[in-house]
Design a protein around this nucleic acid. Structure first.
Lengths: 271, 271
DNA sequence: TAATATTGTGTGCCAATTACACAATGTACT
DNA sequence: AGTACATTGTGTAATTGGCACACAATATTA
């Protein structure tokens, strides 16, 4: 009972803070009630696939950056706006992947909060607090170094987390992340995943480790290089990376024209 | 100007009718505003892939069967309910595939209706008529003979249409159908498409024509049979179909246990 | 009984995937 | 300087899978 009160209370705080943050950054917007967007933002750094998460002051646990949809913007535009508010980036590779609408998706596992209880609270968007909010999931692929995590003044923190070492997540956001990973895994053949996650210059072993991380399996180094190079979407540069006491690998960059042509011919960089 | 008035007027009629229909079939429900579900229902009959469409009295053009989400049901449950209201079927194979949220998705192409005009009309769900409604797209695969199209009293008609010969569609519903076809095309390898679209007993040429229709290309008959049979998901029955002046093809049925096992091993019936 | 259209099965070629081996390179240590 | 070592770069053979193609079996009709 006491526990439930606490959780409801943190809900109220979060909703109020989110409204305030939205208001400050966007001015007055007429948000669609009971509908939101959550972004799973992937980055890749030091051979680790990472997601950008935020936490709230006064609330334990992390969650995906998200926001609401204004009546005057498409959901695509809303997703880009939300992403920009959080990372400062524009023109990001962003894809819708699933809409989450389970009744209990905002309940933390194990907690038995009854919906429609007397604690119901109608917030500024006309949603009933405690009502289920349906959330449209987008995933973004961004170059790690370009993103500047922007914690607003209501965030406790905003940080990158390793996919293989996630913190405790609020709501159903762990499920959302898992579904996003699964999506980029199956789309690796057909979408420019490597191009969007890696920096402009990279080595073949770096590209391979990205593939291995996403696919969660090892790939034979020799076969990988043979196949990737045969696709003709990479340009070998006259530079090498110094990697300590070993042979220096060549740096490559994506030939974006050829990459797009290969994708449109559905000859993507698959494995 | 006059044309715009007419279109707005048909909108009003449709919304009112939809509310009424929902009310009659469901009793009072607290629908989530500005959010809907549309179902692309696929059936297969006489070597043709078909979709179930409905039309409204007093409105030209056809659209996908759809409905609203109640605050007390998950979107999955809502999709099943809507499908059941339209076809009478339960336990249908149903998959979410995309959420459509363009600002102008309810506008017919070529019409320049300004949003937020003075004609705005607030309907029973708190939506502004003329506001964009976001719609979650589901596709269903059902056995043609089991579905009984159920036009309610506000429908002009409810009928199956060949994929290759669609009527004029309202809103963005042609785009929704195309995206659904594209989805089952790419998921043919990983989802039990044949199992859900075909009747219990079928011949290999019938199965092949289904694949050819969905993939929109021809497949070599001998290679198709070899590959499909090698998957081990079919059981050959001791029966043959009479097809006139030709050799009688064997009837087959799906071995559902082996089918599911093959899917989970991602060795689906691909091409 | 022959003609015809359709089903059922087999064979060989080519491309792609996979398994596996060895040479080249950059640094550190002796 | 020379050797040890880990890593990169390239090659080759075996296997698998997709694709093109040929022929026998079957059911009806003329």
């Amino acid at each position: 009972m006491c526990k439930n009160h606490t959780i409801i209370f943190t809900f109220v705080i979060m909703v109020q803070k989110m409204d305030m943050a939205d208001f400050i950054s966007n001015g007055f917007k007429q948000f669609i009630p009971q509908l939101s967007i959550d972004c799973t933002i992937f980055g890749y750094h030091e051979n680790q696939l990472k997601v950008l998460l935020r936490s709230w002051k006064g609330v334990d646990g992390w969650c995906l950056p998200g926001g609401y949809i204004d009546r005057s913007e498409s959901i695509e535009e809303a997703a880009h706006r939300i992403l920009n508010e959080r990372t400062g980036l524009t023109n990001v590779f962003l894809q819708q992947y699933y809409t989450f609408g389970d009744l209990r998706r905002l309940m933390n596992p194990g907690n038995e909060i009854l919906l429609k209880s007397s604690w119901l609270y109608k917030d500024a968007r006309g949603s009933w607090l405690g009502d289920r909010t349906i959330s449209i999931g987008y995933y973004a692929l961004i170059e790690f170094s370009k993103a500047v995590p922007k914690p607003d003044e209501f965030s406790k923190d905003c940080a990158w987390w390793d996919i293989q070492n996630l913190p405790v997540l609020l709501f159903d956001h762990e499920q959302m992340i898992n579904k996003a990973i699964n999506t980029i895994r199956t789309q690796l053949k057909y979408q420019p995943v490597g191009l969007n996650l890696l920096p402009n210059k990279f080595t073949l072993p770096e590209l391979q480790k990205l593939y291995e991380t996403i696919l969660d399996r090892t790939i034979d180094r020799r076969n990988f290089q043979k196949k990737i190079l045969s696709l003709g979407v990479l340009k070998r540069l006259d530079q090498r990376r110094k990697i300590g006491a070993h042979r220096s690998p060549s740096l490559f960059t994506f030939d974006k024209v050829k990459y797009k042509r290969a994708l449109s011919e559905s000859k993507g960089p698959g494995f």
